[in-house]
Design a protein around this nucleic acid. Structure first.
Length: 310
DNA sequence: GTGCCGATTGATGTTACATCA
DNA sequence: GCTGATGTAACATCAATCGGC
């Protein structure tokens, strides 16, 4: 339900074509806290929202997902997923395509994998869904996990996004699911998390690109202005040595030397304050490296944050 | 042999739209 | 022409499967 998503304040919209058509603000993104560190590139992106702030917490997302599932079930008035309370009851339903008896039956490989676990669990009955094939019903039934099951799984996923066999068994037992189902849920959950992370990265790079384009445009314009100035004889009279620029060590911004005609007081007003202030050595002359301009430094920091070198 | 991953399938739910009484 | 019920195609979601590593 869109209402649920919006009300929960889920943030990032990517407007993928198919979705955007109907739901312009769709594709709600979420990051697991562990996946968005404090060094997240989004925090470094100037002029953009703080994504880690605006992105929902995983719990919000979990709630949203659970809410979604719940709402669907509620609206239909049907909860298709019941936790089989006892093995006996499961046995009764085994041939009847109960949601929880949905199987892996089609794949012999996986069924075989599950079998020992069920034996071990004393819940072999659920694996009798294999007999669905024998019943001639080859269509696999779609299982929808209940709200409670999803919530527990999400909780567990928050603690550790992979399960060891022991944890898997315990969780399966607790939820009344087969271990294979728990395993599959975790796999799919990891895939979803990764997909969302990819989408976020994509969005970030898009913004990065936009910023660079804008910066490039600005620099081109500046270059044109400088070239125009260059034609003026007065420019040469007052020009600073061509290979040096002054960088403010505190803010890392490049500024023209005070005597230079290039100085633009309105552009970087605090330079004047620095230069006329107590510390006359505040500005030091540095060799100009075009790749270490503020803009490129910001981008480099962003890129490093995104893909840190080991 | 096992577990994970990416790609894919298929069941199910939602939505927008058309048709009809 | 307007309204509500019904059918349906398109799409979204997600559990489950498959093959590869």
């Amino acid at each position: 339900m869109m209402v649920g998503k919006e009300d929960l304040g889920l943030s990032l919209s990517l407007n993928f074509p198919a979705t955007a058509e109907r739901n312009p603000s769709s594709v709600q993104l979420n990051l697991m806290p562990s996946m968005v560190s404090s060094a997240s590139p989004f925090n470094l992106l100037h002029g953009t929202p703080n994504w880690s702030d605006s992105c929902p917490s995983s719990s919000d997302r979990n709630i949203a997902d659970a809410f979604k599932v719940e709402t669907r079930s509620f609206l239909k008035g049907i909860d298709v997923n019941r936790i089989p309370p006892t093995a006996a009851e499961v046995e009764e339903e085994a041939g009847v395509s109960s949601p929880n008896s949905t199987i892996s039956s089609i794949s012999g490989k996986r069924s075989e994998r599950d079998l020992p676990v069920n034996e071990h669990d004393g819940e072999r009955d659920s694996s009798r869904g294999i007999s669905d094939d024998e019943d001639g019903d080859n269509s696999r039934k779609k299982l929808r996990l209940s709200k409670d099951q999803s919530a527990v799984l999400e909780e567990s996923f928050k603690e550790h996004n992979t399960l060891n066999p022991k944890q898997k068994l315990a969780l399966a037992k607790r939820l009344g699911l087969r271990p294979r189902q728990v395993e599959v849920w975790f796999q799919n959950r990891r895939a979803r998390t990764k997909l969302k992370q990819t989408e976020v990265d994509c969005e970030f790079l898009k913004r990065c690109c936009e910023n660079l384009t804008e910066e490039n445009r600005r620099l081109q314009k500046e270059l044109q202005e400088l070239r125009a100035l260059k034609l003026s004889p007065q420019f040469y009279m007052q020009m600073a040595p061509p290979t040096t620029l002054t960088m403010c060590p505190s803010c890392e911004r490049v500024a023209a030397p005070p005597s230079s005609a290039m100085e633009k007081p309105t552009d970087h007003q605090h330079n004047r304050a620095h230069l006329t202030g107590v510390n006359q050595n505040h500005h030091r002359t540095l060799p100009f490296n075009p790749w270490s301009t503020p803009a490129t430094q910001v981008v480099h920091r962003q890129m490093n944050a995104l893909h840190p070198r080991s």
